[in-house]
Write a protein that binds this DNA or RNA. Structure first.
Lengths: 419, 419
DNA sequence: TCCATATAGTTCGAGATACGAATTTAAGCT
DNA sequence: AGCTTAAATTCGTATCTCGAACTATATGGA
């Protein structure tokens, strides 16, 4: 019996406590596996007896499996627990030109990966993607699949069950933008869709090094520019899933035309396409160049390419000021191919960000660890798992003077032998 | 190993369910009083027996009192419950020039109200404000005071327990900006401080007509400009309480000097002071004019005043585009004296907002119901009550003053008493 | 007057859950 | 073997919600 009842979402029943603590334990296992029950008790603050009951439940639910037995200088050996790596998720990274489809386990490790050219309309996309998904599922008879996650270069409205805003995905005007329905129908699995920037933000939250970054902005720069905002540990979505669409904030009503129809949006100054435009402006007749190529040129010292990249960096910095001054994140993470030239671009952006900081120390700024496609794919893994891993954030910050409850006596963590 | 641990903060105990349901019931009573237990059960989805137990506790805690008895066509008469209006809060609205101090009951009804000129430094402010507070408390021997809420024209950092950013409050450079400590020490009551725009947002959330606006931006325009952001029903604060400081987003690096030190911030184009500047620019030698006066002039048809007000409206609209495109709120509420000329200014702002909407219907835009000072004061009432009413109320927090400070009447300490 | 009916509110036992002390398990060491 | 140590389980208690049964108090008709 998986999941939990959200019948009266706001109300608490006698099972609410279990739901919360189950989420805490499951997330601790996810982040610190392999880990013994005793260490879970120490890390969570729950009683060992409670941890035993919860882990028993998690094993019954097939989220967790017993791993190797540890070895300690003294005493009974701990049995390590870890996530069940036979639970799998299909993830799709839909982008304007190419679409990646992959199979991942619950740890965000990929077991297969394929790419196809992105179809030109939602109907064909649904057809081709679901076909590939069925193929890939058939290729892994040993796994059981939890669901499907899709990263889209636009916004998905949960109420309408449609993609509602995806200017860079040049599907026809009359398109239904319905990918969700067909995919669920054909595969029989539950489908979760999310904006690419939000997916990257989730990837950072779930798989990033820091366990407790509570206020973060993840900025994805590719064909367009997107921002995933994490506030108090929660991803901001807004009523239509449109929150974070800073890429289309109009900075200059007289600026160049944007794909969204308006003029002078941030992304016309800061996206990969913007960099290409800068390059074309200073070097006529350079059509057909890709951004990747432009980066290579810049990397090998081409003056005009470097100039274009610098202009792009200035463009990014310009928009970052509103995010930094307006939302004051602790951490800013950049995702995009441009991070390959971070040595050159990073300092420009950091300077722009520092200039917008009102008080206190500026946010830490860094490029994402993984490459963009991986980040999006892993983010959608997190998205699918999220609801099973329970209410793992409790929004409320604890108050000043520290916790009023004495921490339990903390003994050294047991050291397991890796095998 | 990296010392990361998220212990304790989010665990559920056997009392967690009660904490949540208590919050649900208490908020229902607040919004629908007077209301019977049976209606509470129907509205909440809890069992009547559970509601009885919870209301019994709330009455014991003195948050709720039994009111009049109702009358129905058939059956036993319901006893109505309502908030205990003898529970009071002292609220302070600190502004650059004047400071208001008031006593409110839990329903946001004011029982006294006074004003003093705002002192020129934090030391004097703490002294004079706490003196007035003690006077006002002494004037209401029948009430028991829950705490003190302060609205500040700047940002309060909960970690540092200091006001960290308040450029419009022209306190000296070397000031400690510590109001919180002295007020708590002198009055013996718990003090909560919050930015003025956030306070207004809380006021809308708590006392607004809509019971559940989940995504809202409240924009306060006065000496400066501030934004309180409500996302998914939660006020966004950010790590240092700096979230929402869109007023100091630099729009134009070559623009006029701002009080924060930077140039071309949104508020130099959109605040009351901006309007006065516009007026002075077109009419030399008009010093000493107040914004209120300017509004009167505009209201009576003065061409230059109208022009200044229109420019201010354009300035507001300009910055609203980033909030609307970037955060996509359902509702935008404006607070400020300028709303007196809403007929003229409103349409300009609405047009600007509409132009930044990417897809779907634009947010509803409206001026706040109450005048600015009332909005701020009522917001701080909500702020003080929030932690006792919130669905995630944690009763452990209420043991705060167990140490050295003067004991005060408080929930949960009184054991088995009257009624 | 008495009884049926309707509604409000309370009581009580069952089930879920966390806690914490006691107990069992399983290793190393003397 | 017996002692020590630590992991993991067991069991009694307290909290809390649920739901059925019960009590309290109205109206209105036989």
């Amino acid at each position: 019996m998986l999941g939990m009842q959200f019948r009266d979402a706001q109300l608490a029943t006698s099972q609410t406590a279990r739901g919360i603590n189950r989420g805490v334990v499951l997330n601790l296992i996810r982040r610190r596996q392999p880990i013994s029950r005793a260490d879970l008790a120490r890390a969570s603050g729950l009683q060992r007896s409670t941890v035993s009951l919860i882990t028993e439940q998690l094993i019954r639910e097939k989220w967790v499996i017993s791993g190797p037995v540890g070895r300690l200088p003294r005493g009974r050996r701990p049995t390590f627990l870890q996530l069940n790596d036979r639970r799998a998720i299909v993830v799709v990274d839909l982008r304007p030109t190419r679409t990646a489809i992959a199979v991942s386990d619950a740890n965000g490790r990929f077991l297969s990966h394929q790419e196809i050219p992105t179809p030109g309309d939602s109907y064909t996309a649904a057809l081709q993607i679901s076909q590939k998904i069925r193929q890939m599922i058939a290729g892994h008879p040993d796994l059981f699949f939890e669901g499907i996650g899709v990263s889209v270069p636009g916004r998905f409205d949960e109420n309408k069950q449609r993609i509602v805003f995806a200017p860079n995905l040049k599907w026809p005007e009359f398109d239904s933008f319905d990918l969700h329905g067909p995919l669920e129908k054909v595969t029989g699995l539950q489908v979760e869709m999310e904006n690419a920037a939000n997916a990257c933000a989730l990837a950072e939250l779930w798989f990033g090094h820091r366990e407790r970054t509570r206020d973060m902005a993840v900025v994805t720069v590719s064909e367009g520019i997107g921002v995933g905002i994490v506030s108090d540990g929660q991803l901001l979505r807004g009523p239509n899933g449109l929150a974070g669409e800073f890429g289309h904030v109009p900075l200059d009503p007289a600026g160049p035309q944007c794909s969204c129809g308006a003029r002078g949006c941030w992304e016309v100054y800061a996206s990969n396409w913007a960099a290409l435009r800068y390059y074309h402006e200073s070097r006529a007749g350079s059509g057909g160049l890709t951004f990747r190529h432009l980066l290579s040129l810049a990397g090998s010292g081409d003056e005009l390419a470097l100039k274009a990249v610098d202009q792009m960096a200035q463009g990014i910095a310009r928009g970052m000021r509103m995010i930094v001054a307006g939302l004051s994140p602790e951490e800013v993470v950049f995702v995009g191919e441009f991070t390959r030239l971070w040595d050159r671009i990073g300092p420009v952006i950091e300077a722009g960000i520092a200039s917008a900081v009102l008080v206190g120390k500026p946010p830490s700024v860094r490029p994402a660890g993984a490459d963009p496609s991986t980040a999006r794919l892993r983010g959608t893994v997190a998205m699918v798992l999220q609801k099973h891993f329970g209410p793992f954030t409790d929004r409320r910050r604890q108050n000043r003077e520290g916790s009023s409850r004495q921490p339990h006596p903390r003994v050294g963590q047991s050291v397991g032998e890796s095998m």
